[in-house]
Simulated assay, not measured.
Amino acid sequence: MTAPATPRLIRTTKDLQAWSDSCRMDGRSIAMVPTMGALHAGHLSLVEAAAAKADAVVVSIFVNPTQFGPGEDFDAYPRTEASDVEKLTGRGVEVVFAPNAAEMYPEGFATTITVDGPASGLETDFRPHFFAGVATVVTKLLLAARPHHAFFGEKDYQQLLVVKRLSRDLNIGTEIVGRPTVREADDLALSSRNAYLDAPARHSASRLPAVLRHVVVALEAGAPAETALADGRAALQHEGFEVDYLSLCDADTLATPQPGKPRRLLVAARIGTTRLIDNMAVAPGI
């Protein structure tokens, strides 16, 4: 069955489950792309990969309140459902699941998924609430849609590893597929939060990936990690960033890197009032 040009809009988990059951009864595979909306080319690359992988594609649009802490941008986060659905039209998306908060967290909701392993450190050191909120909503989405595959971008690299571990540990049965970060012409990683940047901040933001690439080159040339990371933090601060972390981790576990294993360089930094995250692969060390 070919997906309709305009996706069907579903608001309740009951209706999403019914759609999923129908797909499975017909022998159709399902791919899901969970999002918080404000879709950009990075999201659409995930949709393209999902449509190439499965018979039916569902995209969720839900700004999840439980992953935002006090003083964060939950109220300001862009909500653009109509234009998001328009962007998905003609891209092989059969269903858009767009519930409200009461549907996802009805009165009396009292269950939270606690995660460890790759969730330890980095984002958790600055946003201790974040991964419990992500893990809980992703679990609910996967259980409602029962996709065979779910697609996430590598820009949120720690989140990607957390969701992979979650699906594996809880035997959810969904293959979690990571896809490369999509970047703007000046190399800044695409993010819905880039819309917060005014012109001067946007210009400064483009220096973030440039600094990361410089650190990657230094690390792969054999520079001590402590030296390369310290130089990178200093360079970011010189560009006007307030650095939360710039860390070199094992690419598979986010633990301390081991000789001969792939590494990942991860950063979170603020320019003005906007917090940006990014990451890049680093070849194995000796």
Score class of each variant (00 low, 15 high):
M1S: 14
A5P: 00
T12D: 12
K14Q: 15
A18L: 12
A18K: 11
S22G: 13
M25W: 00
G27R: 03
G27L: 10
R28E: 15
I30H: 07
P34L: 09
M36P: 07
G42N: 03
L44G: 09
L46K: 05
V47C: 11
D55L: 08
V57D: 04
V59N: 10
T66H: 05
Q67L: 06
G69I: 09
P70Q: 14
G71H: 02
D73M: 06
Y77M: 02
E86N: 00
T89D: 07
T89H: 00
V93Q: 05
E94D: 14
P99H: 06
P99M: 04
N100P: 01
E103I: 02
A110H: 06
T114Y: 00
S120R: 12
S120N: 12
S120F: 06
G121V: 06
G121Y: 02
T124F: 03
F126R: 11
R127H: 08
P128H: 03
F131N: 07
A132C: 02
V137W: 07
L141N: 08
L142I: 09
L143F: 06
L143Y: 07
A144R: 11
A145S: 14
A150F: 04
D156A: 04
V162I: 12
V163M: 04
K164G: 07
K164F: 01
L166E: 02
D169I: 02
N171W: 12
T174M: 02
V177I: 15
D187P: 05
D187F: 10
D187R: 14
S191F: 07
S192V: 01
R193W: 03
Y196F: 02
R202C: 01
A218S: 15
A223L: 13
A225F: 09
A234N: 13
G240Y: 06
E242I: 13
V243T: 11
D250V: 09
A255W: 01
P257H: 02
G260C: 12
P262V: 03
L265E: 03
V267L: 11
A269D: 04
R270P: 06
T274Y: 11
R275N: 11
V282P: 09
A283D: 14
P284V: 01
